[in-house]
Design a protein around this nucleic acid. Sequence first.
DNA 1: CACAAGTAAGTTGTGCACAACTTACTTGTG
DNA 2: CACAAGTAAGTTGTGCACAACTTACTTGTG
Lengths: 144, 144
Amino acid sequence: MTDAPRLDHQVCFALYSASRAATAVYRPVLEELGLTYPQYLVMLVLWENEPRGVKEIGEELGLDSGTLSPLLKRLEALGLCERRRSGEDERRVAIHLTPAGRELSGKAGAIPQRLAQAAGLTAEELDQLRDTLGRLTAALHDAH
Amino acid sequence: MTDAPRLDHQVCFALYSASRAATAVYRPVLEELGLTYPQYLVMLVLWENEPRGVKEIGEELGLDSGTLSPLLKRLEALGLCERRRSGEDERRVAIHLTPAGRELSGKAGAIPQRLAQAAGLTAEELDQLRDTLGRLTAALHDAH
DNA sequence: CACAAGTAAGTTGTGCACAACTTACTTGTG
DNA sequence: CACAAGTAAGTTGTGCACAACTTACTTGTG
C-alpha cells in the first residue's frame, strides 16, 4: 500500500538476488577446487585457525550443526579434513585439516578477484557496501 | 595474499549473511501466511499481474523451471493458484491466482515494515543500498 | 510440407538452510 | 554424589537453488 513496505521488500529481494549472483560468479572458480561456496567458507575459517569445533565454525558463519554436520562429512570424504572426538570433552568434535586441505589454500589463493572485476563498482563502493551490509546483518540479528 | 581477494570474499560473505538475516526477519511474518520467502516472491509477481507463464515469473525473479515447477505445485496445493496449459501454445502453462490467492494480498499488505524497522539503517541508507545492490547484481549477471 | 532447431515446462539428483528433535556427554545445584 | 539443567554434535524432514537432462510442443528453413 504505502511505499515503505515496498522499499522494504525491494531491499530484501535485492539482497537475495545479489547474493545468488555473487555466488554464481564464484561457482566456476570453486568448481575447479571441487568446493561449493559454503564449503569454501568453512575452509577459509579452518585455514585461518585449526583445529576448530563445529560450534566455533558455526558461530563464524552463522550456520548450525544441521547444516555443518553433513557439510563437514563431505569435506572429510573429499580428504580435506578429519573429524576427531575430543578426549577432554567427548561432546566436542575437533575439525583438523589434512595436508591436502592445507594445500588447497594455495590453489584458493589463486582465485582471481572475480567479484571485484565483475562488480562494476569501485573499490570504495565495495568497501562501503561491505560496511553497510555488516551493520545491516548485525542489526537484523539483534532484532531476532 | 593481497588485500583485494580478501575484500572480494568479504563482500560475497557479507551478501550471503545479510540475505539470510533478512529472510530470517521475514520468516515469522510469512509463516502466518503459510508462505516461504521464495513463495512470497512468486505471489508478489502474480499480485502485480496475472496470469503469467512460468518463464515470465522466472525472468522476474531469476529462477528457472527447476526451482519454480515444484514451488508452483506447492502454491497450487495450498489453493493459492492454478496451473493451466495454454490452448494457444501447449508448451506454456499459465499460472492463475485463485480467489484465495488474490485475497492473501490483503493479509500480506499488513506485513509490517519489519526489515526497515529492524535494519538499523536510515531510509536513505536503505535506498542507497538497494541501488548499489541493483547495480552489483546487474554487473554480475553481465559478467556471466 | 518435412524436419532440424528452438522453446516451455517438468524431472532427477546434489547440496545447502533451517526447524525440530535426539543422543551422548558435562556441569552446576542441593 | 545424585540428578536436573545445560551443551555439542548429529539426525530427520521440508523446501529451495541449480546443473543436466527429458518431454512435448512450435517455428523457421530448404
